[in-house]
Design a binder for these strands. Structure first.
Length: 463
RNA sequence: UCCUCGAUAGCUCAAUUGGUAGAGCGAGCGGCUGUUAACCGCUAGGUUGUAGGUUCGAGUCCUACUCGAGGAGCCA
């Protein structure tokens, strides 16, 4: 018999139907009058299927003791309307089979609440919990929604390299990639000769696919990357990972205005898709994780984002009269506390800040005519802070090269990047979105380590 | 990397001024029950993160280290 997923059983199966379901036992409640209730989950949805196994079912006495929390089972039975209050239907078993037992003495997941810190230590089992099942399904929906968003607008999905030899954009410390025998080199203590290394020169894991995406934006048109990126920063916060997934669209003939419009539409569309297609999981987050989750997200889908210039933002912060740990002046970068003030207290909704001072932004951002600011923009959201950083790119060859030198970079090492300005340059723009931060925003999970299946952070790469 | 806090039973936490460890949940067993965070009773389960030090005596005080959490910086 073909297996019916619990999601479709709960939504579509009718009384009298005979079906087969498979999954993992969440709990079992015995009745000494001769039957057991089993809550079965197969990951297809949040809800469990209640299965009733009567003592008349073959091998009941011998096998029911193995049907414990965590055990995997297959059950054939008939669908009945449930007399109980918490479910529409239930399954009355006619036969059942235990694939694998789960010793209750040692199985780490108990039918009680666990701390997220503890669950991180058992990342191989945490997807079997309600919370992480929901996060996984939401993450999947967000990922497919991102592809839909761009594909429906004619964007081309580009796969940029993960290993790179360009020390690009100084976006952070990079992880070195090498096949050299470090153990032996450490013993002989000689100067390292990278010409002997796999690529003939130092190589690293990418910190961004942006520069490569620009190549395709200036040839094939609107495009985007969606892949893993790596930062070897010793960051120990609830918003940083050493390995995270980034979405980076890049568009020719877009100015900063077009860029901001796309970014806003992008966030609102993906959030809207998750609300619509993961309603059961989202109800869970709203009930169990943060009671303002749905309100915050609907605020995002239903209202236009606030757009203010950096200069205006500084004025608002200074005029607020609020005490901050760090004073702010025009020209200094905004601290977390300032960004949070804007999006969480002052406007209470997403804010796009644009036109930052050139001195605090990287070389590839287009200089404005005032000579002081660049065409940069950040999207700030309540709870998470900066979720998107983007800019109109500097398309003028001379200005770009000057900016590189200003930042202490050698233009020769970026010859292919500057070539894009030398041959058929066009105005273009793009932005980067941290995928896990988007998941943080959507699920209200406070720690980003719970928004990716296997988090990599300083001193932790288990699993 | 910096600041603050923490590490005690499988999990979540207690333990006065230093006097050799308790509860709830979970688990096992028994009872009860169309149950659903089930309920009632009994039982088992601990070199108190690691390594030193002070003391007659350390979960408790001191030092170092490891790991974790919150915040900051860096950023996405």
């Amino acid at each position: 018999m073909i297996r019916t997923k619990i999601k479709s059983a709960l939504s579509a199966s009718q009384s009298g139907e005979t079906i087969k379901v498979c999954g993992w036992v969440r709990t079992r409640r015995d009745s000494k009058s001769g039957f057991s209730f089993v809550e079965l989950n197969d990951g297809s949805c949040m809800a469990n299927l209640q299965v009733v196994i009567d003592q008349s079912v073959p091998d009941y006495e011998a096998m029911i003791k193995d049907v414990t929390t965590g055990a995997s089972v297959a059950i054939n039975g008939k669908v009945h309307e449930s007399p109980g209050k918490n479910q529409r239907i239930e399954l009355h078993a006619e036969s059942f089979h235990v694939y694998g037992t789960a010793d209750p003495e040692t199985y780490p997941l108990q039918k009680k609440r666990h701390s997220f810190e503890f669950l991180r230590e058992i990342a191989h089992l945490r997807p079997r919990t309600n919370t992480f099942g929901a996060i996984t399904r939401v993450r999947n929906e967000a990922a497919t929604s991102i592809h839909r968003f761009f594909q429906s607008r004619g964007f081309v999905y580009i796969q940029t390299p993960i290993i790179t030899t360009s020390d690009c954009e100084g976006a952070g410390e990079m992880f070195q990639v090498t096949t050299l025998d470090l153990k032996r080199l450490a013993q002989v203590q000689t100067e390292i000769d990278f010409s002997q290394d796999f690529f003939g020169k130092p190589a690293s894991l990418t910190v961004s696919g942006q520069l490569e995406a620009e190549i395709f934006a200036t040839s094939i048109g609107e495009c985007y990357t969606f892949g893993p990126t790596f930062r070897a920063e010793n960051s120990n916060t609830s918003r940083h990972l050493a390995e995270f997934w980034m979405v980076e669209p890049e568009m020719p003939f877009y100015d900063l205005e077009d860029n901001m419009a796309l970014a806003e539409s992008f966030v609102r569309t993906v959030v809207g898709d998750v609300l619509e297609n993961c309603s059961e999981d989202m109800e869970f987050f709203n009930k169990r994780i943060d009671k303002t989750t749905l309100e915050t997200l609907r605020n995002i889908t239903d209202n236009e984002f606030i757009r203010i210039s950096y200069t205006e933002a500084i004025k608002i912060i200074k005029a607020s009269g609020k005490k901050f740990d760090f004073p702010i002046e025009w020209g200094s970068d905004m601290q977390s506390e300032h960004e949070r003030f804007l999006t969480e207290e002052h406007f209470k909704q997403p804010v796009i800040v644009y036109g930052y001072p050139r001195t605090i932004k990287p070389f590839y951002m287009r200089c404005n005519d005032d000579g002081k600011t660049v065409c940069a923009m950040d999207v700030l959201v309540p709870g998470v802070g900066e979720i998107i950083g983007g800019s109109q790119r500097e398309e003028r060859y001379d200005v770009l090269v000057d900016r590189m030198k200003e930042g202490g970079l050698n233009p020769d090492e970026y010859w292919w990047y500057t070539d894009l300005r030398k041959y058929g340059t066009v105005p273009h723009s793009g932005f980067g979105l941290g995928f896990e931060r988007l998941i943080q925003l959507i699920t209200s999970m406070t720690n980003i380590r719970d928004c990716i299946p296997f988090p990599r952070t300083p001193k932790n790469a288990e699993f």
